[in-house]
């Protein structure tokens, strides 16, 4: 069952109908279906819980001052709009770059205050051309070494968020719609209607023979 009939059945069972490509005739039939459904006796009253919950949400929303427009804040917001993971990472870094923290260079070691360096794999276990997947604090990613250079990228397809799998020839492959990404995150191949962005990069470092990836904290 698909298209109009599925939409109508969802309406009848009280769920949220899923979009489908509707033509003129479908639109007219839908109009009738919505009218009929809305005429079901007693079904158009809002739930008490909904009214209370929205009341609370509005109170919270209105209590907040109007969003401040300081540069740091604005850049943070822009960063988060880029995409869940990319946003989280970018947000963290711009936030750090623009914050007025006292300089920590003197203490000899930089310690991130908004995330952690997560050890992923021993550098010796990652030969040239290798791809190593990892999961840390809810972030999926891959560490790779190409032409001697280490990189870490997100392991989640930028199309619909499926988990990528490494493939010997095709790089990082999305099982859902078949997109391929290079180990540095660029899109190698897709057959989607609209272009998809490259995989967000993750910051990484090598320390005491271990490769560590920077995981921003939620």
């Amino acid at each position: 069952m698909r298209g109009l009939p599925r939409f109508v059945e969802t309406l009848l069972s009280g769920g949220r109908p899923r979009p489908f490509p509707a033509d003129d005739a479908d639109a007219e039939a839908l109009r009738v279906a919505i009218d009929l459904r809305a005429a079901r006796p007693g079904s158009d009253a809002p739930h008490e819980e909904f009214i209370t919950a929205l009341h609370r949400r509005l109170a919270r929303d209105l209590a907040e001052p109007t969003p401040s427009t300081t540069p740091a804040r604005r850049r943070l917001v822009l960063g988060t709009a880029v995409g869940a993971l990319a946003g989280a990472v970018a947000g963290v870094f711009t936030g750090r770059a623009t914050s007025n923290d006292p300089p920590t260079a003197n203490s000899g070691e930089l310690t991130p205050d908004l995330g952690i360096w997560h050890p992923v794999v021993a550098a010796a276990d990652l030969p040239e051309g290798a791809v190593h997947g990892f999961t840390a604090s809810g972030i999926d990613g891959f560490v790779t070494r190409t032409n001697g250079r280490l990189r870490a990228v997100s392991g989640v397809c930028t199309h619909q968020g499926c988990r990528l799998t490494p493939h010997p020839e095709k790089g990082l492959r999305c099982p859902c719609h078949g997109a391929h990404f290079a180990p540095d995150g660029t899109v190698l191949y897709h057959r989607l209607k609209a272009p998809i962005p490259a995989l967000p990069r993750l910051a990484l470092r090598q320390r005491n023979g271990t490769i560590e990836v920077y995981i921003p904290q939620a």
């Binding site: 969802t10 309406l11 009280g14 769920g15 949220r16 109908p17 279906a33 919505i34 009218d35 459904r37 809305a38 079904s43 158009d44 009253a45 809002p46 739930h47 909904f50 009214i51 929205l54 009341h55 509005l58």
Partner: peptide
């Protein structure tokens, strides 16, 4: 404003979309 109008707006939306999740 909210308490006086939420019921009406919800019913209006429900009559236009025919399902609770979207109306909410």
């Amino acid at each position: 404003i909210y308490l006086h109008n939420v019921d009406r707006i919800y019913r209006l939306m429900f009559s236009k979309v025919g399902n609770r999740p979207d109306a909410e």
